[in-house]
Computed example of a mutant assay.
Amino acid sequence: MASTVSRPGRVAKLPPRERILDAAEELFQSEGIQRVGVQAIAERAGTTKMAIYRHFETKDALVAEWLRIVAADYQAAFDRAEAEHPDRPREQILALARFIAEGLPAISYRGCPFINSLAELPDRSHPARQVIEEHKARQTRRLVGMCAGAGLPDPGQTAAEITFVLEGAQVSTQNGSIDQAGDRLMRIIEGIVDRHRPARNASRAAGD
């Protein structure tokens, strides 16, 4: 393991709990959840195992909290889309897709944290899996709401198509099978949304 000396200076200034989460995120992303032990996280964070267990009862609890933070970042993307495009659900959907598209370069070498974690955590009772499943359900509800607000005739079906494309783009970027994934992703999402829009709404959107 690299010593804590090589860690960015800002990390040493973080409060202990945040320093532990920062170290855990880096190690889980680069080496995987199962391969990383609590001792390695302690060394990376410049602390002790005992200190980690004061903040997190178990390693599983630490994994779950890390993924809860990742999920909050995705939910914040929904919040920004709604705030930046009030009463314009079509633009909200495209803003959300753009958030994913712009994040694809990072996924190309680190992978999607949710996909990676699911592959390592087959037990559906694991607290981290429950965090992911709750996040995905909430994400689907919000996307269905955007589709309904855009006047799409079958919001559930459209949200499912968009979800397949967003998640497929992340997997394809991770395995390197598709080039220009971000640009392709945006064109596909625009096509899905506009294909499902009633004719009067589509003509109005063209004039936006």
Rank of each mutant, 00 (worst) to 15 (best):
V36D: 12
A45T: 07
E25H: 10
P89H: 04
L152C: 09
R98C: 01
P155C: 10
I69S: 11
A42H: 03
S203Y: 14
I178E: 14
K49Q: 14
D183T: 13
A119P: 06
A81D: 00
G151K: 08
L14V: 00
H85R: 08
I188F: 13
S6L: 02
E134R: 11
F99D: 01
V165H: 09
V70I: 12
P89G: 03
T173C: 14
A42P: 07
A42T: 04
S203L: 13
N116D: 11
T173W: 12
A72D: 15
E190V: 00
I115C: 07
A72V: 05
M1W: 02
V193S: 06
A76T: 13
H126K: 05
D22G: 05
L118P: 02
V5K: 08
M1R: 06
E25M: 05
R138T: 13
K49P: 14
A205I: 05
S117D: 04
R44P: 07
P105R: 08
D194A: 06
A119D: 09
D183R: 15
V165G: 03
D87Y: 11
A128D: 03
V171P: 03
A205E: 02
F99C: 03
L104Y: 02
A106N: 12
R197E: 12
P8Y: 10
G168C: 07
A42F: 07
D22K: 03
N201S: 13
A64R: 01
I41F: 02
M186N: 04
L185C: 01
H196V: 00
S172W: 15
F99Y: 15
E82P: 11
M146V: 06
H126R: 00
S125H: 07
A169R: 00
S125E: 13
I33R: 10
P113T: 07
T47Y: 01
R35W: 12
N175A: 09
A23G: 00
D179G: 15
A205T: 12
